[in-house]
Design a protein around this nucleic acid. Structure first.
Lengths: 246, 246
DNA sequence: CGCGGGATTGACACGGGTCAAGATACGTGG
DNA sequence: CCACGTATCTTGACCCGTGTCAATCCCGCG
């Protein structure tokens, strides 16, 4: 256990305050939320939920990264979402998750028991409205990802993923992606393969190929440098951008 | 033009009354909706929206089938959703659609101008709640489809699609899919290919292969008979079902 | 120093894409 | 009623991209 973080008590201090499902709440609404929330932490690699599990809570990711994925009987698995800070886990109105949720890095969740949260959604439209907005964004991202999975080549898939991670990393630092930027891949080759619908060997080969083409540089296995952002964008196959942002 | 269907005036008679975004509305709320709604029709093959278009309205599909898709510069296209009666088009809070919407059959939409509808969503929680529920369902379906696109073989993809259409067709007739059932494919081979991330040749070949394996029978090019439903399910690769329902 | 998990690289096979030639079905006009 | 044209679908031959299997490398850690 990496310890319970009972130190984050005050929603006002919360790092995801401005983006999470609670971002629209007024002070009095926050107070209600504060009274029913609790934190849970998971170490890297731990499962958070198995597909079909009874859902006792819904939650926001506060820190860390988790993946949403499904697995077929024979072991083929497909990642269907990356959960980042401020993303929401769980589905009001249903009592089991159709997907597996796994912590990729150490993860802290801000949890609400499902029933009280569902009641709150009825009495507090700010929550429902924000959740609708977030869900619509997720749906757009999921659909954009379908193009990647269904129609892109391995090289385009890798470039698309690198660009997503680059954008996300830049936005965490509150600036824009730019030439020469560097970032760390939060995923293993295998996790990237699961996300992209490839094998880890193909991922490895295409990363090497992008390096040889000087589209990217590598420092160690995880750190990526992008000397020319437009060159990377061109490799995604998208007209100019269009790529998933989430 | 297949004519304006001004005969459907009364929401109480509406065929999608119980499933659409308005399904939770009370009589007085329906009346408000009724005052701002209008119908539009599209012939098979007509575009309904182009990606990037200014969105002047949101709408429910009343009758017919439409597709949601994206296209890359070089012409590769991926369908990202099938829109069936009661499905919702448009995104409150955004003023352009990120995807192309095309009528596959003749389509009738029940439209609401966007602004008034957005106002209504605030004053009428029943609408927002229902839309949230529908969006969450769509998101689950999209994610389930990601497994199909990313990890399934061509034969499994075809079987998955056939099963979806079979289920949907059965549910329209208000019964369950069963051995010996027959249905029409609403899509051309090319549209199926766009949905499945395949080429139309591969679609054609795999349909022929399933016929040779006696998993399906064909009457003409479009009508499909499923002698043994479990056999078809087995071809999808899913453990037992799990397949997308939407 | 040796172990072990992740990553890389190579050799080979095969599924599905590509290109091209028919087949089938259907509507249109003579 | 038939000839023709067009759109859709089927089938074949071939090739390339990606998967599979296996060896090796890299690097952190005990």
């Amino acid at each position: 256990m990496s310890g319970l973080h009972l130190d984050i008590k005050d929603c006002g201090q919360c790092p995801i305050r401005h983006r999470a499902v609670c971002s629209r709440c007024e002070p009095d609404e926050l107070e209600t939320l504060e009274s029913i929330k609790y934190y849970r932490t998971y170490e890297a690699g731990q499962p958070i939920l198995w597909s079909g599990d009874h859902l006792e809570f819904v939650a926001s990711v506060v820190t860390g990264i988790a993946t949403l994925s499904q697995t077929m009987e024979d072991g083929r698995t497909q990642m269907v979402g990356l959960l980042l800070p401020s993303d929401f886990i769980g589905r009001p109105g249903r009592d089991s998750s159709p997907f597996d949720v796994v912590a990729v890095s150490d993860v802290t969740l801000c949890c609400f028991r499902r029933r009280p949260f569902e009641d709150l959604m009825i009495s507090t439209p700010h929550i429902g409205n924000r959740l609708l907005e977030m869900t619509l964004d997720e749906l757009d991202s999921a659909r954009e990802w379908m193009l990647v999975l269904g129609r892109k080549t391995a090289r385009e898939k890798i470039a698309s993923l690198l660009l997503i991670v680059a954008r996300r990393d830049a936005s965490l630092r509150k600036n824009h992606p730019s030439d020469g930027m560097a970032f760390d891949l939060p995923l293993t080759r295998e996790a990237m393969a699961d996300y992209l619908g490839l094998t880890l060997e193909t991922v490895s080969r295409q990363i090497s190929a992008l390096k040889k083409s000087e589209i990217i540089e590598l420092q160690g296995k995880r750190r990526v440098i992008v000397p020319d952002l437009d060159a990377l964008v061109a490799e995604t196959g998208d007209d100019f951008d269009g790529g998933p942002i989430a």
